[in-house]
Nucleic acid binder design. Structure first.
Lengths: 195, 195
DNA sequence: TGTTTATCTGAACATGCGTTCATTTCAAAG
DNA sequence: CTTTGAAATGAACGCATGTTCAGATAAACA
């Protein structure tokens, strides 16, 4: 039995990505089998290979897509003028974007070691581009005398770790609204780099 | 052939833990086989079961040991008097302790989802005990008017994420000494919660 | 209506998995 | 010098893995 009703390729393709994303985030890349992904999609394992050359590409495509979305979304973001306004924009953007995609974020941070060497290099390059955004803001603020950061690379790492950490505890419908969380984190970030 | 020279049980036991720790940290729990661990130890796979009932226990014991070491080490730590001194002690302790054990830290953060339900509950309880330490310091400082943190839980999460993040980039013999890193992070942490 | 073609099945492949266990080895105890 | 028993081997167990592919199916086109 194959292809019961209608043409499915444009439906099944995205479904495979979504199923992989969900399962990789929940159980980890290595712990998820192609048969599990197929089952989640509602298809036999062999059919997955119409949409991906192999399991590794499934992971890589998810991560690359996520990182590219991140960079694209930042470019489209209202940033304001001056280091302080830009830092606030970055803080709020980072928290919001990451809370919108918990699965993709989880995968992007946890499954780096399951990438092949070449694929890893690609993802790391994209990650570096994003980190450079924040480091640039901090450097400008430092030079303008608005921030007091003895080491922009360290401050950048510290801030990103702090902001990304929101994903580990935030739950929709919890004690605090997203806006309130953004506000509190922005307050801490601002003070942490303040002159 | 078995047991070439001398009695090995008191050597092999720790070796198994060390090999598992190293390999789990590098490749992830699910991606490491008992045969790989055995090979790292210099033994056949069957011999591992003289030292652990199963693979899951190997992971659990590593994580439980790490969390207990963490709590014990904090108790033995010089803490100083007052919220500010205690926060500084915590920041420096956290960074130092975690940089000393990169593999264990990596495992403790990445492999939670590979724990059985009961084992997960045990580790989470230990983690909560550690988080409560920092939250307690922040609460005291808030009440004493030394800190200005609108939400102690959020501030605690933000600080711990920031501090633990050091492990992702710090390399021994790099640009900055450990002491310098501790100092910069302490500066940021202090300012972030300052009144 | 008949033909084509994209989509999917289901079985098969070799390989590796966690775990068990009868057997072997050999340092130490008697 | 013999006995003992801890420590390790190595083969085996059933099962799951990623991937391939010939064949089946049904929608789209002529």
């Amino acid at each position: 039995m194959a292809r019961k009703t209608g043409s499915h390729s444009q439906i099944t393709g995205p479904k495979v990505q979504q199923a992989a994303s969900k399962l990789f985030a929940r159980h980890g890349f290595a712990a998820v089998s192609m048969r599990q992904i197929a089952s989640e999609v509602g298809v036999q394992a062999g059919a997955l290979y119409l949409y991906t050359p192999d399991k590794q590409s499934l992971l890589f495509d998810l991560m690359q897509g996520h990182m590219q979305d991140l960079l694209t979304a930042w470019e489209a973001q209202e940033k304001g003028i001056g280091p302080l306004a830009q830092l606030e924009a970055f803080v709020r953007f980072h928290i919001g974007f990451h809370l919108d995609r918990p699965d993709a974020v989880f995968i992007a941070y946890m499954e780096l070691r399951n990438l092949s060497e070449e694929n890893f290099a690609v993802i790391e390059e994209l990650r570096k581009r994003y980190e450079d955004v924040l480091e640039g803001i901090l450097r400008e603020g430092q030079q303008a005398g608005v921030f007091a950061v003895p080491d922009t690379k360290l401050a950048m790492m510290a801030l990103i770790a702090m902001l990304t950490g929101v994903n580990t505890w935030y739950r929709e419908g919890g004690r605090l609204s997203r806006d309130k969380v953004e506000e509190i984190y922005w307050d801490m970030a601002r003070k942490a780099v303040a002159g």
